[in-house]
């Protein structure tokens, strides 16, 4: 994961016309935004639209980006979250779609198992309250720090800690019954 300075440098280079910096930022941010939006919206094509829209806003904002502002990735997650919230307000919740998995996995069995695990995770995440789901995704899947999540969710760091702890507990409870079914051997723990 790049530091705040590295991300800001890439953005500054893009603003000066460096398309390679745009490629690096896209490879860095877009997959994470897509995962986040897919889990928030439960709809892959909508998530792709949100990801593209978020990146477009990042490109437009690049010339005005000032050093010392929030990390570009934090800013992007906040925009993506707002776009997801807008879309969720406009429609009823849907059953989450399972994200695509890479084709180069070891074998068909491993791929299927990985798919089933991701599916189980998504189904469990869908049962969490919105704020807990956002906090757990950002903390435990996207690896953001608590202060970054606090900036994205616009709450205090203590609130983030509480949301992630409660969300994680609930998620563990939801998934614990599926460990053996999904290839995790509890006896080996």
């Amino acid at each position: 994961m790049l530091s705040e300075q590295d991300e800001a440098d890439l953005l500054a280079r893009f603003a000066q016309g460096d398309l390679h910096a745009a490629q690096a930022l896209t490879d860095l941010l877009a997959p994470r935004l897509l995962r986040f939006a897919t889990r928030m919206l439960g709809d892959r094509s909508e998530a792709e639209d949100v990801t593209q829209d978020t990146m477009l806003r990042l490109w437009r904002m690049a010339p005005d980006w000032e050093a010392g502002q929030a990390k570009p990735s934090t800013w992007a997650f906040r925009v993506a979250r707002n776009l997801c919230t807008d879309r969720l307000r406009r429609r009823k919740p849907m059953v989450p779609e399972m994200p695509d998995l890479p084709d180069d996995a070891a074998g068909a069995d491993a791929r299927m198992m990985q798919t089933a695990r991701a599916q189980a995770l998504d189904a469990a995440l869908a049962q969490l309250p919105d704020r807990q789901r956002e906090a757990v995704i950002l903390r435990h899947i996207e690896g953001l720090s608590n202060p970054e999540i606090a900036a994205i969710l616009m709450v205090g760091v203590e609130a983030v800690e509480s949301l992630t702890a409660r969300g994680k507990r609930k998620l563990t409870a939801l998934l614990s019954g599926r460990k053996e079914e999904l290839g995790y051997d509890a006896e080996d723990t």
């Binding site: 889990r39 695990r117 998620l171 998934l175 614990s176």
Partner: peptide
């Protein structure tokens, strides 16, 4: 952490 493998599986999504 029982959850970590599930979470690890959840990170496997590439950008089309």
């Amino acid at each position: 952490d029982d959850l970590s493998l599930f979470l690890e599986a959840g990170k496997q999504q590439e950008l089309p």
